[in-house]
């Protein structure tokens, strides 16, 4: 295999997949870090977001224009899910909320299956030939995906570092009681977190769909890699989620060198167990709950 083949058929797909995982993992790490529970409905929220975008595309809107609308819709959906199903459990042990989120995952998936059916769908039909950039083969949608991920990560990092509400979110992640005593409104921060997480879910689902196809199990199937990415990078750390996402994505594409292709999905699980075994705080020193 030449170097160019390696880059084009393994590294580049790994980076594209990894950056999609990164967007999902950021959402997971925000919920895990700020609201302190493992959110199992994350993948199925991504599925729902992807299918909302599909509905818009079917109505005649360009896919990349449908994305921001789908993100906005999912932001509202996520806040609604929190209000309906998670909020009243906050006085009980957090693990009960984890269970509720598993139920929500099943419910969201059932909604997608009833409304959109179970057959695979695509945003656009037809084969797209990749363009040649100095030997690296890239399709437009891959380029746009990478650009969108970079924009999302930079925007979110600036927001968390410098804005008032971003700082409030980080404060609540560090210590909720202390944050409340300092005048942070936990309720509003929770709502804001869900809005951001919902939008991120829609983005990751959409990008998964546009680079491959949409089906009702797509989100559930990427839940494990996304969790592995979040924990690998360090729970609560946005940069960590990006790093973890890229590592998991690239590792999955590389796994075919040592594992039969059927076991690609096992890569994330092995990485997860390894990091829990040797460095549970994650590569960038996150939290351990």
């Amino acid at each position: 295999m030449t170097l160019m083949d390696f880059l084009n058929f393994h590294l580049v797909p790994g980076i594209v997949l990894g950056s999609i995982y990164a967007v999902g993992a950021i959402g997971i790490t925000l919920v895990f870090g700020i609201l302190r529970f493992a959110h199992f409905a994350h993948g199925d929220m991504a599925t729902l977001g992807a299918f909302i975008a599909l509905a818009l595309v079917t109505a005649g809107i360009d896919p990349w224009r449908a994305l921001p609308i789908a993100m906005a819709v999912m932001a509202v959906v996520a806040i609604g899910v929190d209000k309906l199903f998670y909020d009243y459990l906050k006085a009980r042990p957090k693990i009960v909320t984890v269970m509720a989120s598993l139920g929500v995952a099943l419910m969201l998936r059932a909604v997608v299956q009833v409304v959109f059916g179970v057959d695979p769908r695509t945003y656009a039909s037809g084969i797209v030939r990749p363009d040649d950039y100095f030997g690296i083969l890239l399709r437009d949608r891959e380029l746009y995906t990478l650009a969108a991920v970079v924009l999302i990560v930079i925007g979110l990092t600036l927001f968390l570092r410098h804005s008032r509400w971003g700082k409030a979110m980080r404060a609540m992640s560090d210590n909720p009681d202390l944050a409340r005593l300092s005048g942070v409104d936990n309720r509003k921060v929770t709502m804001l977190t869900w809005a951001i997480v919902g939008a991120l879910c829609a983005a990751s689902g959409f990008m998964l769909g546009i680079n491959n196809e949409l089906h009702s199990m797509m989100g559930w199937q990427v839940l494990l890699p996304m969790f592995a990415a979040a924990i690998l990078g360090g729970v609560g750390r946005v940069e960590g989620a990006v790093l973890g996402g890229l590592i998991v994505g690239i590792a999955e594409e590389m796994s075919i060198f040592i594992l039969p292709a059927q076991y690609k999905a096992a890569t994330a699980f092995v990485l997860l167990l390894l990091i829990l075994l040797v460095r549970p705080r994650g590569l960038l020193n996150g939290k351990v709950l």
Binding site: F32, A38, K94, I95, L223, I231, F269, L276, L289
Partner: peptide, 18 residues
């Protein structure tokens, strides 16, 4: 099991898949 039960939940989803 050294960690909170959330981690066990994630790992058991993974092992069922494997």
């Amino acid at each position: 099991l050294r960690f909170r039960s959330d981690y066990l939940a994630i790992a058991t989803i993974g092992i069922a898949e494997i």
